[in-house]
Amino acid sequence: MTATLAPAEQLGNRLHGVALILVGMSSVQFSAALAVSLYPVLGPLGVVTLRLVGAAVLLLAFARPRLGGRSRRDWLTIGLFGVVMAAMNVCVYLSIQRLPLGAAITFEFLGPLTLAIVLSRRRLDLVWAALAGAGVLLLGSGLGGVDAVGVLFALAAAACWAGYILLTRRLGQAFSGMEGLALGAAVGAIAVLPLGIGAAGAELVRPEYLALGLLVGLLASAVPYSMDLLALKRLPAGAFGIMMSLNPALAALAGFLVLGQELSWAQLLAIGLVVLASAGATAGAGVSGKRSPRARSAR
Rank of each mutant, 00 (worst) to 15 (best):
T4H: 08
G12W: 04
L15N: 13
Q29E: 12
A33N: 02
S37C: 03
V41A: 14
L42I: 10
P44R: 09
L45E: 07
G46N: 04
R51G: 06
L52P: 00
A56W: 00
A61F: 01
G69T: 11
R70M: 13
V92T: 09
V92M: 05
Q97I: 05
Q97Y: 05
R98I: 12
L101H: 04
P112L: 00
A116L: 09
V118Q: 04
S120W: 04
L126P: 04
L126N: 09
A134T: 15
L143M: 15
D147N: 13
V149L: 14
V151A: 13
L166W: 01
T168Y: 00
R170V: 07
A185V: 00
G188C: 00
L195F: 15
A199V: 06
P207R: 07
L210R: 04
L214D: 14
V216T: 14
A231K: 10
P236Y: 09
I242K: 02
M243K: 02
M243R: 03
S245Q: 01
P248E: 12
G255L: 04
F256I: 10
L263K: 06
S264W: 00
L269F: 11
L276V: 15
A279Q: 07
A283W: 10
G286E: 06
G286W: 01
G289Y: 07
R291H: 10
A298K: 05
